[in-house]
Design a protein around this nucleic acid. Structure first.
Lengths: 239, 239
DNA sequence: GTGTGAATAAATCTCGAGAAAAAATATTGA
DNA sequence: TCAATATTTTTTCTCGAGATTTATTCACAC
């Protein structure tokens, strides 16, 4: 399954087991909206779609409960976790709380190797942002990866495995919201400038400024989702 | 299984399914130390012990991964999550971060019904603390429940489901540490005075004072675990 | 004695079928 | 026509057995 509990969410290493394979593919499909919020996840249907047995698929769904991407109701099966504006506001606020604390710790404790990895991650992200102008879907996927990588690098020097664990879950959640809203509104704001400022203040070890920028940065994502059509947001559409 | 993702950890409602039943019993046994940290959890052995099939027990173990009480390593089975001083320090700090924020929100937003439930929970806890003097194991269990109830009531008015979700996980984790250390050191410090101060400042809506007391309160638990024998803390003992 | 490698043992992972429960449909009676 | 009940269908839950993988034991050479 996963190597360790607290670093499991982003475990994209090659799957050692059928359960883990199905788990990873299902997670991707839920985040990308292939399975929309609120959708009933019937084991009998999905097992063919993902080429595994019924029991195996059930285990994969159980693992997704850990990420809060799937909800399970006893004796009534599984369902894609619903979404709502309120939930995303909550995710955003909690993410700010955790991520700014982690960044503060990183800035205080990070060594040279941490600095180097931040520089590298920022460089890779910048490159991806250059190629992002035309709406190329695979370039967007690459940007998504590198964006996450950059954010991970920033807080990597935090000694708190728990904060990073929770942050992983919340980042994943907000990625789902962003993906769904991205269909309509493709990377409007000048995100590169924000990343640049975040990068500069972090390397300057200016914790106050860096956390303030990070807060603004995360809040802006909330705004972009706020402006999207509301009919997207009720996970109540089911047959 | 569980009714909703974000309020699943303390779901002590009667189990609707065999998986959930096994999950609850296993969770209790892990927290109480029946299965010590680091222990290998062999499905073939446990399925008889908990009277369920192998697949069912696997699913219960998978659910425990959500609580970070069990770690799963692909193709190499399950294991009780190890413990360490560093981990408990991390748990404590993160818990303070989340719980003080939630308390601050509760104090700011809580209405009359919230106040009433806090008063009630404090009263019940106080009664349990009176009967706690002689080391009675069932009285201790009752105190444990009411203590958790009181802490839950304090932050119940926080609108953040995510903070409460994470706080649940962390409380559960620290309960395991406390239980293990309690074998040696039975409720030494005067915990009632702390609860009283926490209660008074909360009802007075003094957020600064209340969060300061809560921080001290949680930190003291860390100290009591710090002073316990270290040979208890390496989850490496296995056959 | 130590280390390498094959053979054995044990555990995990995977699957499909049967039992139990929930949901959907049809039937009956006012 | 509507409501309540009975039947059918669908879905979930549960189990044990077979296939893989990992761990252990034992023999053998160095």
């Amino acid at each position: 399954m996963s190597e360790a509990v607290l670093s499991q969410a982003p475990a994209s290493a090659e799957p050692k087991t059928l359960v883990e394979g199905a788990y990873q593919r299902l997670r991707r499909d839920i985040i990308e909206g292939v399975h929309p919020p609120g959708e009933k996840l019937r084991v009998e249907h999905l097992k063919d779609q993902y080429d595994v047995g019924a029991g195996t698929l059930r285990e994969a769904l159980l693992l997704l409960v850990t990420d809060a991407l799937v909800v399970a109701q006893g004796q009534r099966g599984f369902r894609v976790a619903p979404i709502s504006i309120e939930d995303f506001e909550d995710i955003t606020r909690t993410r700010i709380l955790l991520e700014t604390e982690a960044l503060r710790q990183s800035i205080a404790l990070g060594g040279e190797d941490w600095e180097a990895s931040v520089v590298a991650a920022f460089h890779r992200l910048s490159r991806a942002e250059q190629k992002l102008s035309d709406h190329d879907s695979e370039a967007a996927d690459e940007w998504e990866k590198r964006n996450r990588n950059f954010h991970d690098a920033l807080i990597a020097a935090s000694p708190s495995r728990w904060i990073r664990h929770f942050q992983n879950i919340l980042y994943q959640q907000s990625e789902r919201y962003r993906r769904i809203s991205l269909f309509r509104q493709p990377v409007a704001r000048d995100v590169h400038a924000e990343h640049q400022a975040l990068f500069d203040s972090t390397l300057a070890r200016d914790a106050e400024r860096a956390t303030a920028i990070l807060t603004e940065h995360i809040l802006r994502t909330l705004d972009s989702v706020r402006h999207m059509p509301t009919d997207f947001l009720d996970g109540t559409s089911r047959r």
